[in-house]
Design a binder for these strands. Structure first.
Lengths: 336, 336
DNA sequence: CTGAAAGCGCTTACAG
DNA sequence: CTGAAAGCGCTTACAG
């Protein structure tokens, strides 16, 4: 859709020089007589010339674009975007960090998905949140020599250094500690099924901390009707010894779960304390409000962009603040 | 940073055909014998070949990228991003709508800003939120033949059809009506100074609705220390007849303003009712919570992406839900 | 300091 | 149905 834009040759002709000289003038490479430069710049201004980033990107193999793969939003319908709280904040912060260093941030579809627009490969590096176990995208990026940064570790390759820490074990500790402090003696875990660190490492830590005979783990797929959270509540209440605390990872499940508990006459937090693993509007919008982990999406977005920028431009000195992992927004569902 | 990727010629050589045939196979243009196609695809798979989007973009003048200029976040430091609530949600929704139709969404710097990465021009069309009066970016896009969609109207050119309606007058009416219902008889407007529709059309409507001798308008720049909101509170209280209602556009000003009112012993909402023009976390996070306009950023993001996609691909049949303009999140600052 | 020429990887008339 | 060739707009050795 670009069209009648003028090219480097138009400028060269108008300034009475070669395309090389125009290129040198704008890129700063080579040496150009200041007077000549002035002529070139004048001609460019008159013609409204901008160097074509696509052409130069093709030539130099450097586009000035960072790709961001938001998983599992990919492939989902716009209406289905899960974490309205997490993903947009993450992306916004990553974008601003990138822009501040001369890179645009492009939200791309997972290129390993069928029929994905190939645009995904038109970037200098890719941020992936969140990598899944044995991620085909990671394999493809490695094979293609595409620099990347992962937010959360690929369980199949914990040694990969290009990972931004999401501190899942620490967060799990904080949540279990908090539930314990608020009087929970028997805590159930309601966890998603996407094979991402956030799920798998949470369950692993839970099983390390909770005695085997007291473990209650319910796995509920992320992309189901919200009332599955209600079904989880029913399942927990149907146990011989129901839990008096629940750590529920996703916000829509947590909301539905708490609402069902209340509807069935269970007192929250007196009978059951609940913490959600990801903060969201719906947790604070209606009563009882639900205590949640602040995953610090903006801090993580900055971290991820900075990590990738350091890979792309090693000479860049980038300082970004660390996330305050394990921050809890304490609300009514744990007594305050 | 792309590197040892294989090219169309590698595939052609391996499959024993010409580059033309490979191109035809992947693009669907031209006619290729199915058996030949199979050979080509096999060779491509073995080599891990992906068509290079940059090269094809250069040739076809179509990249599959929609640009998004977030103004006035541009040029601001990452830490300064104003509307953590609005912009990320808008961008997230626009991105998903674009992806669903084969376009990536790229967050770009305002290309009219000095030293902006030229990447901004490497897209098929641009969404601008929010255009400023006499926007140089709009002029540049028109001159360059870049398709665009504006979110909010450029006051200098109200006839431009490529605008997503943000319904500022209607929203102003709803806010003033609400303040009136809650007992405000004398409403002040605290408005930003960026020359965008959101500010200018709000003030215009306010002046249409409020008798001239009762108008109180304070203009406070958007990008100042938050305590300027407190200064606005002081200024209002210093008036001979202080207002009993305030419509304050930005959330950080509104938060500081309300906190100062309370600190000075003014009762909110009994003495002064306050509505904020843009919802944000800080309005609902601490007491007194503040009533706010839900600007429907996600609906607007979808609208904007859809409008631009229709321009880029006229044959596309795109249905996206309309925003529910004028929705208020009613909170303590107007009595509940 | 300046320019002619080759080439980045692809697409597209055009000829066969 | 297939391929040779030109060209998208730029950059970069290289020669002068």
């Amino acid at each position: 859709m670009r069209r009648q834009r003028s090219t480097i040759r138009d400028v060269a002709r108008r300034a009475g020089v070669s395309a090389t000289t125009v290129s040198h003038t704008f890129s700063g490479n080579g040496v150009v007589n200041p007077a000549t430069q002035a002529r070139v710049r004048a001609a460019a201004t008159e013609l409204g010339y901008h160097p074509d980033v696509v052409a130069s990107g093709l030539r130099r193999s450097r586009l000035g674009v960072i790709g961001l793969v938001l998983r599992p939003a990919v492939g989902a319908e716009p209406q289905q975007i899960q974490d309205v709280d997490y993903f947009p904040r993450f992306a916004g912060a990553a974008a601003l960090t990138s822009l501040a260093h001369g890179y645009a941030l492009m939200l791309v579809a997972d290129p390993t998905v069928a029929h994905a627009p190939a645009t995904a490969w038109a970037c200098d590096g890719i941020i992936v949140t969140d990598p899944v176990e044995h991620d085909p995208l990671i394999a493809a990026m490695r094979a293609g020599g595409m620099p990347y940064t992962l937010v959360g570790v690929d369980a199949a390759d914990p040694g990969d250094p290009h990972v931004v820490d999401i501190a899942t074990a620490l967060i799990t500790d904080r949540v279990l500690d908090h539930l314990g402090e608020r009087g929970a003696r028997r805590v159930a875990l309601v966890v998603g099924t996407d094979p991402i660190e956030w799920n798998t490492a949470t369950e692993r830590r839970y099983r390390e901390r909770v005695p085997a005979d007291a473990q209650i783990v319910l796995r509920v797929p992320e992309r189901v009707e919200p009332h599955e959270g209600a079904a989880a509540a029913d399942a927990l209440l149907a146990l011989p010894t129901p839990p008096d605390g629940v750590y529920c990872m996703t916000s829509d499940h947590a909301r539905a779960l708490v609402d069902r508990l209340v509807a069935r006459g269970v007192r929250v937090p007196e009978d059951v304390r609940v913490v959600c693993g990801s903060d969201a509007d719906r947790l604070r919008a209606t009563a009882p409000t639900i205590t949640a982990v602040d995953l610090q999406p903006q801090a993580l977005g900055r971290q991820a962009a900075a990590a990738l920028l350091r890979r792309l431009e090693p000479e860049l000195a980038l300082e970004v603040p660390l996330p305050e992992h394990g921050t809890l927004n304490v609300r009514a569902s744990t007594g305050g």
